[in-house]
Design a protein around this nucleic acid. Structure first.
Lengths: 142, 142
DNA sequence: AATAATAATTGGAATAGTTCTTGATATTGA
DNA sequence: TCAATATCAAGAACTATTCCAATTATTATT
């Protein structure tokens, strides 16, 4: 007899529309999963997980949903090297620390009041639309 | 009658060995090209360019050469989103600014004396091996 | 210099993540 | 209700990269 792992979080309610994007059943479940499992899953991981609730969903649809959510600024797409894209619902400007030992990805926030131009020699006239910071290393067992 | 574009730079001399890596003809030309054309070419762009001098070189060999050079710390591999990897001979710790209008990639240096931990809330105990900073935006015509 | 051992190169096949295409299904608006 | 539009599913297609097996080049040893 197979028993499903219990949902750790109470059901997250998701409205019928977010930022102008209609929440279909598929988009809703994809988004809900990202909210609940904040370990930056790949499209395929999302696919496997969401199948619990929508057994007929296809991988192509997961890609479609993820793209729609990214396009509407509801989630973020994160890339490490040329590995599979990963997705996260943390919209605040942040970077990522990739623990080489465990593979776990930690969100890394900016300290308040930090200005990129204080830190980097930007090309003159540069207007920054998007910043991507990725760190790789180890967590010394504290 | 086809005339080759003249080499802008005088021939760059490359020793028989760099950081313990034997410089074969193929590796030498790949490396020379990266030194001369500092526009962060892709493997395929390197391939097409290097063919001028080594008409029989294969794309697989270009990939092999690039990997060997990266492995020995002679060049760096740079990834933007999930686009083709690009390669650059600038070894100093630096980031990249990607001009959305022109597609041109500019190297961006750190201001002297900047410490990552001053700027980011790193996870406690994090030891950083590698930093990757990518900016995307536009260059306001100065 | 000849030979054996090792390393590098080539060309094509294989792989993996993602995108595209087509037909079916659902939703919205008139 | 009907037409127009959007979304979905399934699998084919695409692309950057890696792998593989056979050949060629280089190095070390006699």
């Amino acid at each position: 007899m197979v028993s499903k792992a219990p949902d750790i979080f109470p059901e997250i309610e998701i409205p019928d529309e977010i930022s102008g994007l209609r929440m279909t059943a598929q988009r809703r479940e994809v988004y809900r999963l990202l909210q609940q499992e904040r370990n930056h899953p790949t499209a395929n991981e999302v696919f496997m997980r969401v199948k619990d609730r929508l057994p007929n969903i296809s991988l192509a649809t997961v890609y479609n949903c993820l793209e729609a959510l990214v396009q509407h600024g509801i989630i973020r797409q994160v890339n490490f090297e040329r590995e599979s894209s990963r997705y996260c619902p943390n919209l605040s400007e942040h970077g990522h620390f990739h623990d080489a030992a465990t593979g776990v990805i930690h969100d890394v926030d900016f300290k308040p009041g930090v200005n990129l131009a204080d830190v980097l020699n930007l090309p003159p006239g540069a207007v920054i639309d998007d910043v991507e910071i990725t760190l790789r290393g180890k967590l010394a067992s504290a």
